[in-house]
Design a protein around this nucleic acid. Structure first.
Lengths: 103, 103
DNA sequence: CAGAATCCCCGCCGATACTG
DNA sequence: CAGTATCGGCGGGGATTCTG
């Protein structure tokens, strides 16, 4: 467990502004996912995805679970703090839909 | 009226991630404000504030009204589309408070 | 499979000065 | 008052390559 950053609203917004982060959180709302699956969902290069996942983990929004197997398997899931974002993400999505209706 | 950009959710998130943008929108929810007032509210240098305001205007979230007076006066206000963001901003603020309670 | 390392480049950011 | 002009720095971002 890392949880180094104080999860301030400004930090969250800055992170949400990075490409793919919104999609990562939305995807994980359906359940835990592996690195490869997130790569496909976000269309991010490995390095960028890795950085974003670390940011999210440091902010306490997601957890990383490493399974000692062959082949290696790592799963990412929302923490309670991450799940608490759901209403906000819903509200943003709702705005996005209304924005399309009134051009 | 400019309204050049299609207001997609990704664009909004990217813009919200820029420093000061959240504060600009929140401040304007209380009513129209002038450039100088926004400068004080956000603590942004003039150039950055000017860029952010233009981004917001291009996305159709705020409107710019210039009064031909001496001294010059310009007021920024939320458009209906900008006001439609209020629930989302509220939800984000609510998350911010819960984030503080559960460190 | 899940990342780390390296490299290079551009775009933003803030500071300072100036003007209609 | 409400911006624009100019500049320098640096940090993030993507592409590519390599490894436990």
């Amino acid at each position: 467990m890392v949880q180094s950053k104080r999860p301030s609203l400004e930090d969250l917004l800055e992170l949400l502004g990075q490409r793919g982060v919104y999609f990562i959180l939305r995807s994980l709302q359906q359940g835990a996912l592996r690195f490869g699956a997130l790569q496909q969902a976000t269309a991010l290069p490995p390095r960028s995805l890795s950085l974003r996942l670390r940011d999210l983990e440091e902010m306490g929004l997601i957890s990383r679970t490493e399974y000692q197997e062959v082949p290696p398997r790592v799963e990412y899931a929302l923490t309670p703090l991450g799940k608490a974002l759901e209403p906000a993400l819903e509200a943003l999505a709702a705005w996005g839909k209304t924005a399309l209706k009134t051009p």
